[in-house]
Amino acid sequence: MRRTELVFERPERVFAHEPPEVRGRARDDVRLLVTRPDGQHHARFEDLPRFLRAGDLLVVNESAAIPASLPAEGSLGPILLNLCTRFRSDLWIAEPRWSAGKPGPLPIEPGEELRIGSATARLLAPYPGIPRLWFALADRPFESMIAEYGGPIHYGYTDAWPMETYQTLFSRVPGSAEMPSAARPITPRIREQLEQAGVRIAPILLHTGVSSLEIETDTVEAQAMYPEPFAISADTADAVNRTHMNGDRVIAVGTTVVRALESAWTPEGLRPRTGFTRLFVNPDSGVRSVDGLLTGFHDPVTSHLALLTAFMGIDRVRDAYAEAIRAGYLWHEFGDSHLVIRQRDR
């Protein structure tokens, strides 16, 4: 697939600039666009159980967001260092940025030192194939800097909000640089309705890195990916496999869940697995582990959009996004939701 195929025009009026709670609404008071083989359907998020059925399995990410944006000062003056992937307490992949609204890459050289409060972090080398990311080595655990100086990663279209704004009902294990936001509208009320409808829920864990990176290669499939830690338990693997065997549907809540499941998929089904994944789910690789995807609306020319294209095909993505823009659905982590159900081909 060519990079240009993931380009689309999107007016700024569809950006969600604040959480629905700030607009005087509940978390689950957002819209839901449902894309099925028979076309597009407009709904509210509280209607989600109506589009699912008894026996369906929702797979959710239990990772909790951390305040991973650190104010730093170096030879270029004040910048941000947004943490991405943890290897050990003093070594992370990180993204140096001019500001929340102005990304890099920055004109820095290996060995650049950044002051973060009383701590020092040294940028060792750029991550291969992704020049905006660097290996960062600190003189003390990054966890201490996160606790003292960290704030939520956010971008130019929205302000920083209190950290609880970035947690979901399923957030249990701290570690994500950014919120796995697809589950954000699932409130206790929605979960109870799902359970009453016979829909089951199973967890995975994937600590997400920064989401701001665009695909930079001319061919989508050639894009490098940074690693993210993930874990799939034996119980979840068994639940996914039994759901498929019974002819029921597995619905991933978020692209992070798809990435984790695809990273542990084998010809014999899903297997328990723990480690790092650099898997880039794209139209060439396809999606084998799920029958549906509950997600948000994704930016042009990003890995998230490439994953959606792998799941539903570029023509259906274009049709759905054209309808979403026409109808005024809201983009980004505080925006509206998109449920995609595809025809089973197994």
Rank of each mutant, 00 (worst) to 15 (best):
R2A: 09
R10N: 03
E18W: 11
A26M: 07
D29K: 09
H41Y: 09
F45H: 06
R50T: 15
G55H: 09
D56G: 04
L58R: 10
A65P: 01
A65E: 02
G74N: 08
P78Y: 06
L80K: 07
T85N: 05
E95V: 09
P96G: 08
P103T: 04
L106E: 06
I108R: 02
G111D: 06
G117D: 14
A121K: 09
A125Y: 12
P128W: 05
G129Y: 05
P131Y: 07
P141T: 09
M145Y: 04
G150M: 12
D159A: 12
M163N: 05
T165G: 03
T165H: 10
T165R: 04
F170W: 11
F170D: 03
R172S: 14
A177S: 15
M179P: 02
S181L: 09
A183W: 01
T187C: 14
R189Y: 06
L206R: 01
H207A: 15
G209C: 04
S211W: 01
V220I: 15
P229G: 13
I232K: 00
A234Y: 01
V240N: 00
V250N: 00
I251T: 01
A252Q: 08
V257M: 07
A260H: 11
T266A: 12
E268A: 13
G269F: 01
N282D: 15
S285Q: 11
G286K: 14
H298T: 09
S303K: 13
L307Y: 05
E323S: 15
Y329H: 08
V340G: 06
R342V: 14
